[in-house]
């Protein structure tokens, strides 16, 4: 049985995946030896649904700015279209010979191909959504680096005004994403690192305030204040980098999250 990466994809494809698995078992146990009924209508319905999905997919690929999505979608279209053609060929062959064994195998291959092709297509699109969250996270990472140049209270106020909405936006998106994942370890990783960031953001601001105050009072204790601030920036950057890494993992990367 395939493992689906997100709950949306799982909800769509898991019931069909289970049915196809049962079909494969029946075929392997040679329990499907009776004459096959005319499958023209259900096969035509699949073909029409494939055409509609591919059309929406092509519209998406044409309208997106995501170059990776543009590249990755066409092979997924080919996958579902070839599988649909395979089903049509099998149905025609079975109409001529309702006992044809190669045609039955072709039917099963076609059904499996529709399943994996649809999964690939949805995964391409899902990864594009992930890249949008990654862009937000990289923005936060860049902004964290700015904290090292803040040396007066006025700049600190501006920094906090900009960091807070960026951090909240990322936390919301990452939390929503964690709820979508079927892989518990990946979901927990995202939640833990987001919680770390929520906890350390006020600590960062506090450390920056101490650094700014030290500078204002003549600079005694500057090194310690700077080291403390940099340590917190390092911890927060690590959390954001981990979020970026985990966001890009798929269910196949089970061992990546140690």
């Amino acid at each position: 049985m395939p493992v689906f990466h997100t709950k949306t994809i799982e909800a769509i494809l898991d019931p069909v995946a289970q049915q196809v698995s049962q079909l494969v078992i029946l075929h392997e146990e040679a329990q499907d030896g009776n004459a096959m009924p005319d499958l023209s209508n259900p096969v035509m319905a699949v073909s029409a649904a494939v055409q509609n999905l591919v059309k929406v997919g092509k519209d998406t690929a044409n309208s997106t700015d995501d170059k990776i999505l543009k590249q990755e979608m066409p092979p997924a279209f080919t996958g579902v279209e070839e599988s649909s053609n395979k089903l049509a060929e099998a149905a025609m062959e079975l109409k001529r010979d309702p006992y044809s064994s190669p045609a039955r195998k072709k039917l099963i291959d076609g059904a499996r191909g529709i399943l994996s092709g649809t999964s690939d297509l949805l995964l391409c699109f899902d990864q594009s959504e992930v890249r949008k969250i990654v862009r937000v996270a990289k923005g936060v990472l860049e902004y964290l680096a700015v904290s090292e140049v803040v040396e007066c209270l006025e700049d600190l106020v501006t920094f906090v005004k900009n960091l807070s909405p960026g951090m909240a936006n990322m936390a919301n998106k990452v939390t929503s994403r964690s709820k979508e994942l079927t892989h518990t370890a990946h979901a927990n990783g995202l939640i833990n690192h987001t919680e770390n960031l929520k906890r350390t953001t006020p600590v960062l601001v506090s450390s920056m305030k101490i650094f700014v105050t030290v500078l204002k009072k003549g600079g005694a204790g500057r090194d310690e204040a700077q080291q403390n601030r940099n340590y917190i920036i390092g911890c927060m950057s690590h959390d954001v980098n981990e979020i970026i890494r985990i966001l890009q993992l798929t269910s196949a990367d089970d061992d990546e999250l140690s």
Binding site: L23, P37, V50, L53, V56, A111, T118, L122
Partner: peptide
């Protein structure tokens, strides 16, 4: 487009499910 992709994928999954049922119906007779 995300909603439309998901909708069309659901419709394809339903059509595939009906096809598999038609094949299985024969096999289970």
């Amino acid at each position: 487009n995300a909603g439309e992709m998901v909708k069309q994928a659901k419709l394809l999954a339903m059509a595939t499910s009906q096809l598999v049922n038609a094949i299985k119906g024969e096999a289970e007779d």
